[in-house]
Amino acid sequence: PDIDGISLLKSWREAGNMAPVIMMSGHGTLEHAIEATKLGASDFLEKPLTLAKLLMVVDKTLTEAPALLAESIEPILPTEKPYPFEPVGRSLVAQNLRNNLQKSASVSHANILLLGEPGTEIDGVASYIHDLSPERKGAFLEFNLGTMNDALFNSTFFDPSGKISPQIIQHGNGGILYFKEIDEASTAIQTALAKLLNALATERKTSSAIQLRAIFSADAYLPYLVEQEEFSSELWHLLNEVTIQLPSLRLHPEDVPELINAYVHYFVEEKHLNYRHFSIAAQNRLRNHEWTGNHQELKNLIKRLLILGSQDEVSLDEVNAELEKQILEAPKKADEHTYSLPLDLPLREAREQFERAYLIAQYERVDGNVANLAKLVGMERTNLYRKLKSLDIDPKTGK
């Protein structure tokens, strides 16, 4: 052959061929195995190997293949909408955010780009925009570009002739398409998304029959990726009609008491938890906490306090105890780990042990954020989830 197996697998994936692949090599290295895994290989075998081992791996791959292929190529149209998050608070930061969201939502068909740190309720804000928009009676279809592969994106949004999929028009027309984690999209998906946005713009100009609006969300560092030419500049200009930066909670801690009330109301009304009142001292303590996890960290803390507490009032002691518990249970940083190379094991077993230790250490390094983990280790998130599963690592706990 003119190219090696890794190059062939890469060209297949770039062309949208998501068929299961088993890599086999007589001179396999750890680097080759990692590269093959990044490209979505089901397994990587080193020669020599027994026929029994080969048959076992083939049988396992064929057993899993139908589910993986269905996941890869079947168009999906999600229907569950995130709970709307209305930014609350009297601070100037909160007031400006509300005003910007309300003004942006009211402009029919204007695409909106939301940028924010992890935990800033970005999905809820997108849902809130939908509720305020002229498209509020239409559908809200959410698509996570961090988990979609190229074939799935194309089969969802385009028909075989390359035109906008009739399924998208049928279910989404008059509503909003919400594309989240666009900073995680592959190069091929970025190109296809630009094609889709151009096609939608053309349809709006030439016909009133197709009216679809888009909201996008990404990590706050997306402009940096554009500057570094790691994200499509063409797509960036198409997205950047209206850009709204969601502030971190650290920028407006004075709004924490109102956020507490909003989250308590949410958990009582929507999740049917028992109501508990936060004492003034408890609220003040939470105002002074450094919310590195932003709104999501506060929301999770409130949920735990509502579930675990037995008194009507959440006291300062309870809050302090829970915050101290978070510190004690926080994972050690990766540089505190030591790892001995298992030199007495066969290459395959040694590689698996190394991969498991490596991913656990990197998981702790990013404080359990799988999106950041995927960036750090250089893997597409779908393949990363599969790798974690194969190594018996829980994506929720890193163990």
Results as ranks from 00 to 15, higher is better:
residue 383 N to R: 07
residue 53 K to L: 13
residue 353 Q to W: 00
residue 50 T to V: 09
residue 154 N to F: 03
residue 303 K to Y: 14
residue 148 M to L: 15
residue 242 V to Y: 06
residue 339 Y to E: 03
residue 247 P to I: 06
residue 153 F to D: 06
residue 5 G to M: 00
residue 258 E to D: 14
residue 280 I to S: 04
residue 47 K to P: 10
residue 71 E to A: 14
residue 331 P to E: 07
residue 312 D to G: 05
residue 192 A to I: 08
residue 214 A to N: 10
residue 186 S to I: 04
residue 74 E to S: 15
residue 370 V to Q: 03
residue 209 A to Y: 10
residue 335 D to E: 15
residue 198 N to H: 12
residue 63 T to G: 02
residue 55 L to A: 11
residue 350 A to Q: 03
residue 36 A to C: 12
residue 303 K to N: 08
residue 105 A to S: 11
residue 64 E to S: 13
residue 140 F to A: 09
residue 183 D to I: 08
residue 198 N to Q: 12
residue 278 F to V: 02
residue 277 H to R: 06
residue 367 D to E: 13
residue 387 K to V: 08
residue 157 F to G: 07
residue 152 L to A: 15
residue 32 H to E: 15
residue 210 I to E: 02
residue 274 N to D: 09
residue 342 P to L: 07
residue 248 S to P: 02
residue 264 V to Y: 00
residue 134 P to T: 10
residue 8 L to E: 01
residue 200 L to N: 10
residue 218 A to K: 08
residue 67 A to S: 10
residue 31 E to T: 09
residue 222 L to P: 05
residue 173 N to Y: 11
residue 295 H to C: 04
residue 75 P to G: 01
residue 62 L to N: 10
residue 366 V to H: 09
residue 132 L to C: 12
residue 248 S to Q: 11
residue 337 H to P: 02
residue 54 L to G: 03
residue 195 K to T: 15
residue 37 T to V: 09
residue 23 M to R: 05
residue 240 N to T: 09
residue 186 S to C: 04
residue 132 L to K: 11
residue 159 D to Y: 08
residue 77 L to V: 13
residue 160 P to Q: 05
residue 121 E to H: 12
residue 29 T to R: 07
residue 110 A to T: 08
residue 151 A to D: 02
residue 394 D to C: 06
residue 256 V to I: 15
residue 27 H to M: 12
residue 80 E to L: 12
residue 394 D to F: 02
residue 17 N to Y: 12
residue 320 N to W: 00
residue 191 T to W: 01
residue 120 T to N: 12
residue 73 I to D: 05
residue 11 S to G: 01
residue 116 G to M: 06
residue 88 V to M: 01
residue 266 Y to A: 02
residue 287 R to N: 09
residue 102 Q to P: 00
residue 395 P to N: 02
residue 158 F to D: 11
residue 108 S to R: 14
residue 205 K to Y: 07
residue 190 Q to T: 01
residue 174 G to I: 07
residue 307 I to W: 05
residue 316 L to T: 03
residue 3 I to T: 14
residue 150 D to K: 15
residue 167 Q to T: 15
residue 127 S to R: 06
residue 319 V to D: 03
residue 173 N to F: 11
residue 354 F to T: 05
residue 340 S to L: 14
residue 164 I to D: 04
residue 178 Y to G: 02
residue 277 H to Y: 09
residue 311 Q to E: 15
residue 364 E to C: 15
residue 78 P to I: 10
residue 343 L to H: 04
residue 336 E to Q: 15
residue 314 V to F: 01
residue 381 R to H: 12
residue 332 K to H: 13
residue 283 Q to P: 00
residue 99 N to E: 04
residue 15 A to E: 10
residue 297 E to Q: 12
residue 354 F to R: 05
residue 259 L to R: 13
residue 134 P to G: 12
residue 81 K to Q: 14
residue 115 L to I: 08
residue 224 Y to M: 14
residue 234 E to T: 13
residue 3 I to K: 09
residue 134 P to A: 14
residue 311 Q to F: 10
residue 123 D to R: 03
residue 132 L to Y: 08
residue 334 A to W: 14
residue 119 G to E: 07
residue 143 F to C: 07
residue 87 P to I: 06
residue 18 M to Q: 13
residue 152 L to S: 12
residue 44 F to N: 05
residue 264 V to L: 00
residue 363 Y to A: 00
